[in-house]
Design a protein around this nucleic acid. Sequence first.
DNA 1: AGCACGCCGACT
DNA 2: GTCGGCGTGCTC
Length: 818
Amino acid sequence: MSDSQSERFAEVAVFSALDKTLHYVVPSHLCERLQIGIRVLVPLGRREATGLIVALHERRPDASAGIALRPIRAVLDSSPIVPEDLICLCKWMASYYFYPLGEVLQTALPSGTGSSPQTLFALTSTGKEKCTAEKDSTLLGLLAERDATSLEEITRALPSEKNIRHKLKVLEEKSLIERIFRWQNPQPGPKKIKSLQLLAPPESEQMERSVPLRLLVQLLDDAGGTLPLRVLRQTVPNLDYWVRKLQKQGAVQVLETVEFREFQCAQSLPPSPAPTLTPHQKKVFEAILPHIEQSSFQPFLLFGVTGSGKTEIYLQLVEKTVAAGKGALILVPEIALSTQMEAFFRQRFGSRLAIWHSGLPAGARYDQWSEILSGKRDVVLGVRSAIFMPIPRLGLIIVDEEHDASYKQDDRLRYHARDAALMRASMLGIPILLGSATPSLQSIHHSQNNRYTTLTLPGRIFDRPLPDLQVVDMRREMRGNRILSKPLREALEETKQNGRQALLFLNRRGFATFYLCNSCGYVPQCTACSVSLTYHQKADRLRCHYCGWEQTVPEACPQCGNTILTPHGFGTERVEEEVRKLLPSARIVRIDRDTVNHPLDMVRSLDAVRQRQADVLIGTQMIAKGHDFPNITLVGIINGDTALQIADFRAGETMVQLLMQVAGRAGRGEEPGRVILQTYNPTHYTIESVVRMDYSSFCARELESREKLQYPPFTRFLKLLVTASDETTTRLAAMELGVLCREVALELRDKDCHVAVLGPAPAPLAKLKSRYRWHLFIKAWTNREMQLFTETVLNRGKNHPALRRVQLSVDRDPMMSV
DNA sequence: AGCACGCCGACT
DNA sequence: GTCGGCGTGCTC
């Protein structure tokens, strides 16, 4: 074997679904340029792949014993694009969420940065000669016409041709064709623009003669000597002529400069000094500050109702963090919430602020990321995936509205950004602040166990009163309107008369929930998903809310032929119609997934409401989050119990959090607010807790019941989801997985590892986007047990033929557990 | 995930 | 006999 003593080795996480890292030999000419965290091009079988260096070794790693290591082909970055601390976090995520490290790292990079080159086939010089000599096979003919062609393109161009792969291999062996590797889509990168720089003043004679030249010089002078050609072209006639002429004289120079793609959602606020903290705020601030200064890991749970002044504490803590030369990360649930936050942070931190959310175009996203990496922007405000931002010297993490479900990613890498943030903070040894008016029971539990330091902001700022909350028992409203009860109708009229705004909340969009055949009870269902279709009046069509399928309302029942199908239930669209009937002159804004396609649509709608361009705002969950509408004095909760029907142990928690948030919308201005809660279960303890606005007693009761039933946070859950396009395959695989799980559970009892296996059963959405779904739940008492059990099951599952035919996904700490 | 290998049935 | 299908296993 190799006797070279100076040989070095690199451990690479390839950006593909490989569940382990691979080792490569570092060629001596690349040795200098290799560092942990840079991307490399490596050979992988017959392909070329991109990966990230996660470790460098002086000696041959034991893990690679008996394998002929291949050399790294090329280095793609001049400096690390993933800092070591972030690699550590990704490693933890890969192992905790059972996901390949390479793919975790890909999620941590702006799209395209983690892509691999495509394999293309092209004629060699001998191949070209052969091709002109004799018009050979269609395959060679095709390759002669095109330059380099991918396998997919060839298959598309020659559908009748069979076994293309094999034929290509034969041609390659004869050296007629070769493989070349190329990135298909342009890699994201900085936006480069051409600018003109003034080096010396042009000859005065020339200046006197030409007006455009004088204008050009004037503009450049005013701008400090350099301006983009794009800008100059707008005002200077004949610009290109003058540029060429002055270039020849050596008076100007055309530079290629990088332009930062700014992307601002929020309105700009005029700069203003930081307000003095109230005594309560100050107490919270002072509890956290030493941990920022000394860099020590400590989770804080900040318990404060909406309007209690959490944001100002965040701002001042971040100010202290950056003043100490460290970076700060602030996570927020979603874009619309971030816009108000963005306005405040922009006002305070200006161009030191980077924002990160799904509404960002790819170019702006790349620029934000690269300026974060370079340390130019050290305050990062973003949604879930901002947990992956490469912030140098990170010194503080804040997770606002930490209970929010949008922190959990629901596909692929199913991570929880709050939990990942806690891990990142603990790895770095820095404080983390979790803020919420209604913390998750998990966090409440930790704070009771003193794992988190609890801080409280009592009351609302300026001592605004809590809104007056009235429960309407909808069982007694049967004779009247089942959508808008009498008290709500009256309150709406009054609010409109007073020139105030109202918010109506319900968690169902569309007009009617479903259509029902009056004679046989048939309900039109989506063929790809096992849900009933929702009627949308504006489009006069039935829609699937899961896959987007649309169809017309059937004229006759396909089951019994009856022609009478009637709509049942109601959604936001129907509420809008009811309000229009009641208040014909009201300006109504509806916010749900039908009116909001792009994240920015919502920002625009919410701004319209804030600027009083609407009287009534109707919406789904999307509007429940902490938006600040000072002029809203009435909040109507149309259906305050739908969440209870969901068979999830967290349904009560989610509902109380949501209702309390919505109720908190009322009366954030000077006026006191009013909340009307319509429900069919006025005596349910979740409703009673909301009425009393008493979150702590709800938590106490809920925790007690969770402990009795051994549910999280007292235990850990994990969901195994089996999906396939064939129903039987899915069911059989799920059954086999169930047997395997029980086998493993029994075996591991000897190793002091106890888990409970629940299921398998068809998932609540038994079919989604034409794929059948079965799931299993694992309950464990510790993380260690869960880790050992799941690793064992997944390892053994690899050699089960039935499981290889399906897709198996793992969801650790799932949000929806039935 | 790709991609190759290898084992089987169906066609020249 | 090969061609072409898909199941199985590996990629440093």
